[in-house]
Amino acid sequence: MTAVVVDNVTKVFNRGRSDEVPALTDVNLTVGDGEFVSLIGPSGCGKSTLLRLIADLIEPTSGTVTVAGRPASQARREQEYGIAFQQAGLFEWRTVRRNVELPLELRGVSKAERRAKAEEMLELVGLADFAGHYPGQLSGGMQQRVAIARALAVQPPLLLMDEPFGALDEMTRERLQSELLGICAKTGTSTVFVTHSIAEAVFLSGRVVVMSARPGRITASIEVELPSRDEAGRQAPAYFEKITEVRQALRS
């Protein structure tokens, strides 16, 4: 089964008003099970809009979005995906552990189970020692890791990420990229990842989807095959070749 099918989707904001904005035009995208797909493009190309359509945070003007074989709205209600944004969006009044527990809490998971799960996830992102801290006491990178742990807590088959590392410094960013790949490999999660960094897209993804603006549409889809996804991978000739290929696709 495929994780995501976006079929002929068009999205127009403020339809029928004077400030009408066509955000996406005739977009088709398929994400297979366990696949890691990055969406890349200039600002205004609609990559975040596409992600929000998959998450059913907004509805398409025309076309259909299917997640795990169900309509997107049903998939959202059944919590078929976890999501992380550029801002960590943690709740400052909850401790780190209780932030991770929140989606489980809303699903009615028992207290003991919730706690065990949250601790497991914090272990996964390397923050087990900070479970009792409040978000305000953590650095930006740590907050983002908590947000990822929260997205993973319900063990969703699909992970949606909207520039989750966008606000971090380069060193933290590379470390979190490696961690994310490890987690995805371990859990077998399918991922849709929005970014505007070419290097990040190439390093993380099995496929980089290139978009262009006005109107927002998909212009290229580039398969990425790297010898390894680690420090050595970042220096491999194949890595640089793919970066060049994506850059050219973005320019054309």
Binding site: R52, A55, L57, R76, Q79, Y81, F85, Q87, G89, F91
Partner: peptide, 29 residues
């Protein structure tokens, strides 16, 4: 309400009452 929190609670399919209790009230403290 922080727009990120708003979107997040929507992805959790949280009801209006849950939203008020878990996000709105503590956020307004």
């Amino acid at each position: 309400v922080d727009p990120v929190h708003q979107e997040l609670m929507r992805t959790y399919a949280a009801s209006g009452w849950t939203f008020a209790r878990k996000v709105r009230l503590p956020g307004a403290l």
